[in-house]
């Protein structure tokens, strides 16, 4: 097996990297792919919590690179999907506890066992970010439709390309169709035009994400959630399926009426 390693990154914090990693990983596992998620945010781990696996951690990423345990011992199997694994970050160490070389060899080892390795990058452009991009094949940049987020995304695109990670793809998170509709939020075309990169998917703003994070259950497990469908579509696109972007910019009159009377 020769898996594909993807880093989920953004520069700016709080745009949804961890939520994206958890949901995209779960969605790929639901497509019968073997997936390992790596939390590269050393000292500020959170991917375990979003997946509801916080009580199962025995070993972490640092234990693996310091050879306190075998890789398999540190990989936590997801409680819902046997194809999904989590390699948690260490919570009590700092980001210098792991090097780029160590991350590279870890990723290469995982590529032999997995179809996909998704690396949840820390915010910022310091050493933690460099560790997160070591050894990966594709950069996936998460941005929300805000000036600060798009600016930082542009910076990250430049840094990825400087590291030889060309042609990163964009994921727009928290798009609000009502605000786009009245011209108070940049739309998909605006952001793609500014950043000049390929778009992989768009996730609408959805309060169900907060609820799913509260419970530690990824939103993709919910059939009806709009945002969950968006993540499932992104997973299918990664698998090479031709799925058009959801038409979340133009709301149908029927849906608008439903929303106004509070049915959806």
């Amino acid at each position: 097996m020769k898996g594909k390693a993807i880093v989920i990154t953004s520069g700016k914090g709080g745009v949804g990297k961890t939520t994206t990693t958890a949901n995209l990983g779960t969605a790929l596992a639901m497509l019968d792919k073997k997936v390992c998620l790596i939390d590269a945010d050393i000292g500020l781990r959170n991917l375990d919590v979003v997946l509801g696996l916080e009580n199962r951690i025995v070993y972490d990423l640092i234990d693996v690179v310091e050879e306190n345990c075998r890789l398999e011992q540190a990989m936590i199997k997801d409680k819902r999907n046997p194809n999904l694994f989590l390699l948690p970050a260490a919570q009590t160490r700092d980001k210098d506890a792991v090097s780029e070389e160590q991350m590279k060899s870890l990723i290469n080892e995982l590529k032999e066992k997995m179809d996909y390795i998704l690396v949840d990058s820390p915010a910022g452009i310091e050493q933690g970010f460099r560790n997160a991009i070591a050894g990966v094949d594709l950069g996936l940049i998460v941005a929300t439709p805000e000036v600060s987020s798009v600016r930082d995304a542009d910076r990250i695109i430049g840094l990825l390309e400087a590291e030889g990670l060309n042609d990163p793809q964009l994921l727009i998170n928290r798009l609000r169709r009502d605000m786009v509709g009245r011209g108070d939020m940049m739309n998909i075309d605006d952001i793609v035009e500014i950043l000049a990169i390929e778009i992989l998917g768009v996730i609408p703003e959805d309060e169900n994400i907060v609820i799913s994070t509260n419970k530690g259950e990824p939103i993709v497990l919910k059939d009806k959630a709009y945002s969950g469908k968006a993540f499932n579509n992104i997973a299918k696109r990664l698998e090479g399926q031709d799925i058009p972007l959801m038409t979340i910019e133009k709301e149908s009159l029927f849906n608008k009426v439903k929303r106004i009377v509070g049915l959806s």
């Binding site: 805000e146 000036v147 798009v150 600016r151 542009d154 910076r155 430049g158 605000m179 786009v180 009245r182 011209g183 108070d184 939020m185 940049m186 739309n187 605006d190 500014i194």
Partner: peptide
């Protein structure tokens, strides 16, 4: 009668040129 998104876009384009 335009929304604020055009302001966002113009500011961004200016900022990105400086950043780059």
């Amino acid at each position: 009668g335009e929304g604020s998104k055009n302001i966002a876009k113009e500011r961004l384009q200016f900022i990105l040129v400086q950043d780059r």
